[in-house]
Simulated scan of single mutants.
Amino acid sequence: MEDLTPASISQRIAELRLEHRALDERICQLASNPEDELEAKRLKKRKLQLRDCITKLESMLIPNEPA
């Protein structure tokens, strides 16, 4: 990744969350049309990838201090 400052990580998380929400809305639109099933599956896969990336970035913001 580029600059791994907490601010840049937080900004990237915000961008990914926006994309995640947009995908969710698009998937809901496609749900009414069974002909778009393949596209819906692709979007759902991308949405899961985004969720994984967001989780990974969020874990980078947690300090490595002993409990």
Rank of each mutant, 00 (worst) to 15 (best):
I54T: 02
A40H: 08
D3L: 02
I27R: 00
M1S: 13
E25Y: 02
Q49K: 10
C53Y: 06
L30W: 08
A7G: 10
M60E: 13
R21Y: 08
K45S: 12
D52V: 00
M1P: 11
K44T: 08
E58G: 06
L57A: 02
S59H: 11
T55A: 09
L61Y: 13
L61T: 07
K56F: 12
A40R: 09
E39L: 12
S32D: 07
I62S: 05
S32M: 11
D24W: 01
E35A: 09
E2L: 04
N64V: 05
L30H: 04
N33L: 05
E2A: 03
D52E: 15
E58V: 05
R17G: 01
S8D: 11
M60N: 14
L18M: 15
E2I: 01
R26L: 01
P34E: 08
S8M: 07
A40E: 13
C28F: 10
R26W: 05
T55C: 10
C53A: 15
K41C: 12
S10I: 03
R21M: 07
L18R: 15
R17V: 03
E37N: 12
A22F: 03
K41M: 14
T5D: 14
Q49H: 10
K44C: 04
E19R: 01
E58R: 09
L43C: 11
E2Y: 06
L4N: 12
A14E: 14
T55R: 08
E25P: 01
L4E: 14
E19P: 02
D24Q: 05
L50A: 07
P63R: 02
M1W: 15
R51T: 11
S59C: 14
E37Q: 14
R26S: 02
I9Y: 04
E19A: 00
E39G: 13
A22N: 09
R51F: 13
P66N: 09
A14C: 09
I54S: 02
L16C: 02
E35W: 14
K47S: 00
L57I: 04
P66D: 12
T5K: 07
E19C: 00
